[in-house]
Amino acid sequence: MPTLKTGGRFKSAVCAGEIMVVTASGDDVELTCGGAPMVEPGTETAADATVHPDHAVGIAMGKRYITEDESLEVLCVKAGDGALAVNGQLLLQKDTKQLPKTD
């Protein structure tokens, strides 16, 4: 897959999930969703592709996901059944601190 750059958008090849890269280290890493490498929006994907059972916890819209060392952070912009992973390691969900409404 292409290098992950801040602002870059990718979709899952095996479910409805879509993400946007929030921060990236610039290193070449392969981001997968549902066990399959993510692809650029507009790429044709196989209709019969399925989510790998070990990568099936799903992603939720508006949630942010990070690698353990926080070198990669992505935002889920469309929910999907697949889970995100880098080098086979599942990404973790990042908590947004609930702040008082100010604007």
Partner: peptide, 16 residues
């Protein structure tokens, strides 16, 4: 865009 979007992502929970 990066300034405004980071402000929102770090201070607002989506659909909250």
């Amino acid at each position: 865009h990066k300034h405004l979007v980071s402000y929102i992502l770090s201070s607002v929970e989506f659909a909250s």
